Computed example of a mutant assay.
Amino acid sequence: MTAQTILKYLLPIVQNRTSNETSNEDTDYADYSLPTLDYSAYPVLCVKESNKQFRLWFMPTFYSIICLLGLGGNLLVIFTFFTFKRLKTMTDVYLLNLSFADLFFALSLPFWAANGMAEWVMGLFLCKAMHTIYKVSFFSSMLLLSSISVDRYFAIAKAVSAHRHRYQALFISKVSSTVIWVMALIFSMPELMYTTIHNNTCTPYLNSLDPLRLKIQVSQMVFAFALPLIIICICYSSIIKTLYQARSFERNKAIKVILAVVIVFLATQVPYNVVLFWTTMLGAQGGTDDCNYENNLLYVTDVTQCVAFLRCCLNPFVYAFIGVKFRHDLFKLLKDWGCLSQERFFRYTCSRRRSSGFTDTESTTTFAP
């Protein structure tokens, strides 16, 4: 067989093999090529760097101011109560307990500031204590203000009945104050149990969408905020109605301090609880996919929380500017400490006594805390 004949038979075989290899290469390339992905189906991480930077300066600044004012003001109130033995009525006992609640919370504020600035490095015990103290202070304050409003209702709207049981009132107030602290601790048990350290941050719950957390928050808001709020509104509405019918609005000066305390507390606590309720309902619906909305909600939560913390340092100033008897005792205490001259003391106290008709009787103790 000649060479020409051999080439004639081999050439189609080589061409066929070359064609198959090219086809295989094309197939391999098609098999291993990456498909085009639709990234719109994947969730995008919401960046909260702006909130972090905001907390770095906002929280330490305001927490430091609130802590200093709260410690100084409430210690002054407590010293005044014990120095002049002012525990003569139910309201006096409740106001003293309210000062202790605010004082304990003010002591926890440095830890709140540390948690907002950097990673939590102080251990699980202080983490749990920080959140538990806040809840105990909040719940005890609401229950104490409810008790004050009930006491004011009986003292003014049911004056005859209150006068008949005035000797048992002080014992009842001490027992009820103890019960209030126990109830506040019970309401705060979820924070004591579930508060933990997650991502180097002290947080009450691991997941904001946890159904258990949502149920606990709703129950706390109902029994420790909404219910006392209703009691306060009913009692003071009845007091105003009684004073209006009696046409003796001069007696209204005697309860200005209580009304001021309640107004200050509600003005500071209602906004934060409304935001907390809204975030709870939002969590029950699965949260939000709007990153801008989530960031704005965090800003509102931080600001309203600081306003809520503010009430621990406002109550002493309410006493000093409105409460006639407390202001007199405070001036006397400052005079004894050498912070106020004798001349200024008489100028401040004597003019106040003449303008308010102040007398040191049991009735003025009851109606003018």
Rank of each mutant, 00 (worst) to 15 (best):
residue 279 T to K: 06
residue 334 L to Y: 12
residue 278 W to C: 08
residue 291 C to W: 12
residue 275 V to M: 11
residue 82 F to N: 11
residue 20 N to A: 12
residue 268 T to F: 05
residue 104 F to V: 13
residue 258 I to C: 08
residue 38 D to Q: 07
residue 31 D to W: 14
residue 165 H to G: 00
residue 180 I to W: 00
residue 316 P to N: 02
residue 54 F to A: 15
residue 328 H to E: 07
residue 272 Y to E: 13
residue 46 C to H: 02
residue 268 T to Y: 04
residue 43 P to V: 02
residue 73 G to F: 08
residue 151 D to P: 00
residue 291 C to G: 14
residue 201 T to Y: 04
residue 18 T to K: 03
residue 243 L to E: 09
residue 231 I to Y: 05
residue 302 D to K: 03
residue 21 E to T: 06
residue 179 V to M: 10
residue 350 C to N: 15
residue 339 C to S: 13
residue 156 I to Q: 01
residue 355 S to D: 10
residue 10 L to E: 12
residue 195 T to Y: 03
residue 90 M to H: 04
residue 351 S to Y: 03
residue 209 L to W: 05
residue 113 A to G: 06
residue 173 S to D: 07
residue 318 V to W: 00
residue 284 A to G: 06
residue 201 T to G: 02
residue 255 I to W: 00
residue 145 L to N: 04
residue 54 F to R: 15
residue 128 K to L: 01
residue 340 L to T: 09
residue 130 M to L: 08
residue 3 A to H: 10
residue 228 P to C: 04
residue 273 N to S: 08
residue 319 Y to D: 03
residue 144 L to G: 02
residue 98 L to F: 04
residue 304 T to W: 01
residue 122 M to C: 03
residue 180 I to A: 00
residue 73 G to P: 14
residue 80 T to S: 14
residue 9 Y to V: 14
residue 196 T to N: 06
residue 69 L to R: 06
residue 192 L to P: 01
residue 48 K to S: 08
residue 266 L to N: 13
residue 359 T to L: 08
residue 269 Q to A: 15
residue 6 I to F: 13
